[in-house]
């Protein structure tokens, strides 16, 4: 079953109503946005459940088991509970900043999906700056962290916010540079072009030796740090900082941070799958199934990291980024450029 056909039909149906073209486009885009939002909300809920299951099975437990089949209704119940909770705003917070921080985190997390192709043709808008757009939008996550840290008027929140901002800024550099290596080879910033340049499995950038795997590993490490997950989960190191930047948040606002976090995890995995594993390309199954399979495989890797590793120390974290990851990814970029230029492996 291909979904794009349905969309085409719906679009034509909308056109046949005789509305002006501008309005048709606005309605189409708005409904696409709403749909993506719905899909992502479901995915985020699923990821919360999945994280619990993965962690439980890594730790030889079962995790939630009582609500529905293997506890699948658990996160739905949790989400509903979280939304019903009293929305507490402590009296000493910087109100506007405190209010807008989760909103920005939430919006930034979802805005990225404008240029992520869920399948063949399943993309809201194939911007020609695709990947650059994603990287630009994710910087708003940092702003939201800083706002949450500052706005909470709490030392733990402030320290957590600053830590995560410092961390995200430093890991953004190797992440972008490792993405650049792929861009050099694809010759385009558009996500669709990048996917289409990996039509065959041996063309996946992950298998372009030697630069592909290096770029992927630097990417996935930097991405783990970007999403503030173990072993880079310093912003929420509970032994030092209680809970990090979101310590003062509760109810709905906390839910927004929480959801944004899981959506971000899905985002970095989706980018990883798109850039290195051929995105939606794959035989037999519909394209969006392939995309989801690959993305969830990468999400699993991130969860695997989280439930296996201890946490780094702040200085070690920075050292790792600046003294190891960055030089490696730069060397890799030069290598990729040279390979492209010399025409080697240029299948």
């Amino acid at each position: 079953m291909e979904i794009t056909g349905i969309f085409k039909y719906l679009y034509e149906l909308l056109q046949s109503t005789g509305l002006p073209q501008v309005l048709v486009d606005i309605i189409a885009l708005a409904s696409a946005a709403v749909m993506i939002f719905g899909v992502l909300a479901v995915i985020a809920l699923f990821l919360v459940w999945w994280e619990r299951k993965v962690s439980a099975h890594i730790q030889q437990r079962f995790g939630p088991m009582r609500t529905g089949w293997h506890g699948w209704r658990q996160t739905i119940a949790d989400a509903v509970k979280l939304l019903q909770k009293e929305d507490i705003t402590p009296s000493t917070v910087d109100r506007p900043v405190f209010f807008w921080a989760p909103v920005i985190a939430f919006v930034a997390a979802f805005m990225v999906y404008v240029t992520i192709p869920f399948g063949d043709g399943l993309i809201v808008s194939d911007l020609n700056i695709g990947i650059l757009f994603i990287i630009a939008i994710t910087t708003f996550t940092i702003i939201s962290l800083l706002m949450a840290g500052w706005g909470s008027n709490n030392k733990y929140a402030l320290l957590g916010g600053m830590r995560s901002a410092a961390q995200v800024v430093s890991y953004e550099v190797p992440m972008v540079v490792s993405v650049l290596a792929v861009i050099v080879f694809a010759g385009s910033l558009s996500m669709v072009d990048i996917v289409q340049s990996q039509a065959k499995i041996y063309k996946w950038y992950f298998f372009r030796l030697p630069f592909g795997p290096i770029a992927f590993f630097t990417y996935i490490i930097a991405a783990t740090a970007e999403t503030n997950r173990t072993p880079f989960d310093l912003p929420e190191a509970e032994q030092e900082l209680v809970a990090g930047f979101n310590v003062e948040y509760s109810g709905m606002k906390f839910a927004m941070f929480f959801l944004a976090e899981f959506v971000n995890m899905f985002t970095v995995s989706a980018i990883g799958a798109t850039l290195f594993f051929g995105g939606w390309q794959g035989p037999l199954l519909p394209s969006w199934v392939w995309f989801l399979v690959k993305t969830f495989a990468l999400v699993f890797v991130l969860m695997w990291f989280r439930w296996t590793y201890p946490r780094l120390r702040v200085d070690q974290l920075m050292e790792f980024s600046w003294k190891f990851l960055l030089p490696v990814s730069f060397a890799n970029l030069i290598l990729a450029g040279w390979m492209k230029y010399s025409g080697w492996f240029n299948w």
Binding site: I58, Q59, T230, A237, W307, P310, R311
Partner: peptide, 11 residues
């Protein structure tokens, strides 16, 4: 757990 690894705790 203090070093941030949760799984060994349960082991």
């Amino acid at each position: 757990l203090d070093l941030g690894a949760i799984t060994p705790f349960l082991y």
